[in-house]
Design a protein around this nucleic acid. Structure first.
Lengths: 256, 256
DNA sequence: CAATTACGTTGATGTTGGTCAATAGGCGAG
DNA sequence: CTCGCCTATTGACCAACATCAACGTAATTG
């Protein structure tokens, strides 16, 4: 296991949860394998312990909701393991998926604006999250500059993420959207140390379609087409990226 | 020209240029007519003065850019008067408008995430903005809790705003989008004390289309149709909302 | 003030992706 | 294992919106 000269844990493989010394057992963030992805980036040991003091954990089964639109906003949630979707029910009762979220990502920030969540968060597989009560997080970030900065970067990153989705929805055609979606998933898997070239989709075609502004049939057709063209392998939810350059090429191909 | 005790240039509310006491001349935010919309909400006089100490102003002519994609991120900007668009150039060189912004709104938050702006901000009419250097804002918000909270709410509100646009782009048809757009503009005018039922559009049909994921012809046709149906009056950029309930009815009308 | 350019409107036509429908595969409950 | 349900695939058809094109009107410039 890697430790720097100040005794700080660097990276822990999630596959070896029991390889921690007894000293480490009392803390959570300090040894979390996701530290470099999470709010804790750049914090020293002392500060990490302060975070630990109020962060708790919770497990969710597949299908369980973490919060619902309208719920009072109390905390932000860091995904430790698993996979979530966030969605909004439109006035007409249609579900629109606003995001898919994986380990290391933080969800719930939509609730800050008026003390209530505006979307639902649902686990798409058995998951575990870290609960960060918001008032304490705000308090702590007044004292720890690097935590404050990190938090602001996460909020801003969410804004940027939403804007790229706006561009996708506003200017891309169906196949471009699907290609972009697959490449995005692939890239996020890689960052987390998983295979970028083969993975299981945790969501249905309908949820993908909702997220991309398409109907499920269109998603299915695009998958089949990419499959026929040798760009990907598809077998239900199991995806294999065979030609990522080919997928990327679809994005730049301006039709007009 | 107005200068505060530390030699800093001040600019006075254009609506009340001569109504300031000599004491008031030293401050800006405290008497800004937009205080209730801006970051300064809920701050007491003392704190407002601390804000004033590092906030400066700048005027922009129509067409001028406040910042460009790629520019180093240095400050957030509060719009004092005028109207802005933010947009992104996609890889294919197409412009996609990500937002229209009016007095009291804060732009530039996309730049926090990686120290560079990801979009362009352009004045669509002669405008004036308040420059809030970001490191100082961060510093101050560590000391003033209500400023911190307000800032976080602004970031969160931006996230929620982007998400409603995602829903619009992902699930509404052309006429619904246009109706939603007009109603949104109207409502924001009302909040600012302007007429909610008649106003000048500051952007072109093409910019509206880019924002809504439509082509300019589609925007034009929808305007004409609404006009024929007596919902609105249109004369180039001059818009008159004649039947806002009728417009709202278009939104709930689910076609499927 | 005339000339030029940018912006807006409207019509004819075409394509993308939505809609409807039928079938099949996978997975959980019993 | 088998039933039943949810999910996915595929085809035929259609509507919404994009595209192409022509023309009209406002704004800008020299």
């Amino acid at each position: 296991m890697l430790v720097n000269r100040r005794g700080k844990l660097l990276i822990v493989d999630p596959k070896f949860p029991n390889s921690l010394t007894s000293n480490n057992l009392r803390v959570a963030c300090a040894q979390c394998s996701l530290r470099e992805l999470c709010l804790a980036v750049g914090l020293d040991d002392d500060d990490l312990h302060k975070l630990d003091d109020f962060v708790t954990r919770r497990k969710l089964k597949r299908g369980q909701q973490l919060y619902r639109a309208g719920d009072p906003f109390e905390a932000l949630y860091a995904i430790r393991t698993g996979f979530f979707k966030t969605d909004i029910l439109t006035e007409e009762g249609l579900e629109q998926v606003t995001g898919f979220h994986m380990a290391g990502e933080i969800i719930g920030m939509d609730g800050i604006s008026n003390d209530h969540h505006v979307c639902n968060a649902t686990a798409l597989e058995d998951s575990e999250i870290c609960i960060m009560p918001y008032d304490q997080l705000e308090e702590l970030s007044r004292h720890i500059k690097s935590l404050q900065q990190q938090f602001h970067k996460f909020m801003s990153r969410e804004i940027v993420r939403d804007q790229s989705l706006m561009i996708l929805l506003g200017s891309m055609r169906a196949e471009e959207r699907i290609a972009a979606f697959l490449l995005n998933l692939s890239q996020r898997m890689r960052v987390r140390g998983y295979s970028a070239s083969e993975f299981h989709l945790r969501m249905t075609r309908e949820e993908i379609g909702s997220y991309l502004g398409l109907k499920l049939e269109t998603v299915s057709r695009a998958f089949s087409k990419f499959h026929d063209e040798g760009l990907i392998g598809v077998q239900q939810k199991y995806i294999r990226i065979l030609d990522s350059d080919g997928l990327k090429a679809l994005l730049n191909h301006t039709p007009t």
